[in-house]
């Protein structure tokens, strides 16, 4: 089970702005092993969605991928022709988005939006596509799938819409599913059902990149976790290690914030300060202006992500250990 399905190497995404070029994704490397659920966690705006969009070739203009490679089973997506890469999407890699309401076309029947995928990739005829879509609807737990096929998105609840999205993403049995905050817009009971469904998908052989700011979701679902901060990966570890013994001060802060919630302490623990704007990043380590342990060195030099034996961390403090 150590085969690498997706490798991202030194990915950079740049956007020109009035205040100069910014890099929402700055030399990010990550791997997804076949058959696993890999988590990518971080605050809003840290670049996790942008990383996923780069894989799907969905970066909005004027932004673009300016460096690095994305490999699917060793094939470099950047070296592929436009059409070849496009046809990979929906068939080998697919993606579901945060807001299932706005992610479905409001003027198209839910079923049609799903069978469009197999009609495109497998050339299935209309009748067969309809049959398979209804089958898929049933598989992702949509009750009364025949009727739901002809429903418009506004006639469905948020949970059902996300199931439609999942059906759409899964109908060609892709190798990789990128789920960008798939449960953020849903309420807690529905979230649990959707997560359960995703676990089933993994058992069915699909690897998943799960993007979330919710550590509870990450803890429940993932084997491997990457923590992202201000465009960079700051820590990477197996789920158990990460939660038991976080190395990076940022990860520690994140975990403390969650624990304080669970223990209902009077005071909510937070990380002081805000995520820095990408055009006014602090010198040295990007977390140094919010870090309680920051030293002179942290404010001068930027720590690289280094292997610490089974885990990776980008922090100078780990030198002492």
């Amino acid at each position: 089970m150590d085969e690498k399905l997706l490798e991202i190497e030194d990915l950079c995404v740049e956007f020109p702005t009035e205040k100069g070029k910014i890099r929402p994704v700055d030399r990010v490397s990550l791997e997804i092993r076949t058959g696993t659920i890999t988590g990518l966690v971080g605050e809003s705006g840290c670049g996790k969605s942008m990383t996923a969009r780069a894989v799907m070739n969905l970066i909005k203009k004027p932004g673009k991928m300016t460096g690095g490679r994305i490999l699917l089973e060793g094939r470099d997506l950047g070296q592929m022709g436009a059409k070849e890469r496009r046809l990979l999407q929906g068939r080998e890699i697919s993606m579901i988005f945060q807001d299932p309401m706005s992610s479905l076309n409001p003027v198209m029947k839910a079923g049609k939006q799903v069978d469009e995928v197999i009609r495109l990739h497998e050339g299935t005829d209309a009748g067969e596509a309809r049959r398979r879509t209804i089958e898929m609807f049933a598989a992702v737990g949509i009750p009364d799938p025949e009727r739901r096929y002809d429903a418009y998105p506004h006639e469905l609840s948020g949970g059902l819409r996300q199931r439609v999205m999942i059906a759409m993403a899964m109908i060609c049995k892709p190798k990789l599913l990128i789920a960008d905050e798939p449960t953020t817009a849903l309420d807690v009971t529905v979230e649990a059902q959707i997560l359960e469904l995703m676990e089933k998908l993994r058992e069915g052989g699909t690897s998943i990149l799960l993007i979330s700011h919710n550590l509870g979701v990450i803890a429940r679902m993932c084997e491997d976790v990457y923590v992202m901060y201000a465009g960079k990966i700051v820590e990477h570890a197996e789920i158990g290690t990460l939660f038991a013994d976080p190395a990076h001060p940022y990860t520690k802060g994140l975990l403390r914030a969650v624990t304080s919630l669970q223990e209902e302490t009077a005071l909510l623990e937070t990380i002081p300060g805000n995520v820095p704007q990408l055009y006014e990043l602090p010198q040295g380590c990007r977390f140094s202006n919010r870090c309680a342990f920051a030293t002179e060195r942290c404010r001068a030099d930027e720590p690289a992500l280094r292997d610490l034996g089974g885990r990776e961390c980008a922090c100078f403090l780990e030198d002492r250990a």
């Binding site: 059409k83 496009r86 929906g90 988005f97 706005s102 479905l104 469009e116 995928v117 990739h121 759409m168």
Partner: peptide
């Protein structure tokens, strides 16, 4: 709009994205 991203993520060509969605 978001559903345009969905359509592109399906692998549809830009022409199909515009005409159909």
């Amino acid at each position: 709009d978001d559903y345009i991203d969905t359509a592109r993520a399906k692998g549809l060509s830009e022409t199909a994205v515009i005409w159909r969605h």
